[in-house]
């Protein structure tokens, strides 16, 4: 769907990568769900709870935010005000897209840079998430996520233009042929 459709085999690798990415997202979400549900079950049935459950589920949410955001970048699904570009003729629209994606790449790159700086600061005087697991390990997702987002914005500024109707995913458009109700 994105980038690098230069050769068939390259695009196959990209597809595989995207599938792995989707699988990871689903797995993390499932872990979050199971953690939350078992915490409720432990409380209701056994009057107890896992001490590490709360900090770990918060960390999972942070990771979902970055990796979900990274996948949203891949699909061009970020929320944006696109009223103006919609009014532009195709060529100008294409240029507006490239410039805006380049800008986003610069900004997310900056965020990645300062995330590294935060991790350095944290390693000088570590605090702990739970037990002996330092917080900076959980923070690693920030430079990782923002860095790859920057890369994806760069690629998308060069390779493909905006979707025809940005808010609407192809999945949703497929819902068209629902049967009508009897009345």
């Amino acid at each position: 769907m994105t980038a690098a459709s230069a050769t068939p085999s390259a695009s196959r690798w990209v597809r595989l990568l995207h599938r792995a990415e989707d699988g990871l997202l689903a797995l993390m979400l499932l872990a979050l769900l199971l953690l939350a549900v078992s915490q409720i079950a432990l409380r209701v049935f056994f009057d107890t709870g896992l001490i590490w459950s709360e900090p770990v589920s918060r960390l999972l949410v942070l990771w979902l935010a970055l990796l979900g955001g990274l996948a949203a970048t891949r699909e061009g699904k970020h929320i944006a005000i696109d009223a103006l570009p919609r009014l532009l003729p195709p060529l100008w629209r294409r240029i507006a897209w490239s410039v805006s994606q380049l800008g986003a790449a610069a900004i997310t790159g900056t965020l990645a840079w300062y995330s590294i700086s935060m991790i350095q600061l944290e390693r000088e005087m570590p605090t702990y998430l739970v037990g002996t697991l330092p917080n900076w390990v959980g923070m690693l997702v920030l430079p990782f996520g923002f860095g790859l987002m920057a890369l994806r914005f760069l690629i998308s500024s060069a390779t493909h233009g905006p979707a025809a109707t940005p808010e609407l995913s192809p999945e949703l458009a497929d819902l068209d042929d629902n049967p009508s109700v009897k009345s």
Binding site: M118, L121, E122, M125, T127, N135
Partner: peptide, 10 residues
């Protein structure tokens, strides 16, 4: 608390 201490250091 941890955020406040980080911000003091920054």
């Amino acid at each position: 608390d941890t955020t406040v201490l980080r911000k003091i250091r920054l």
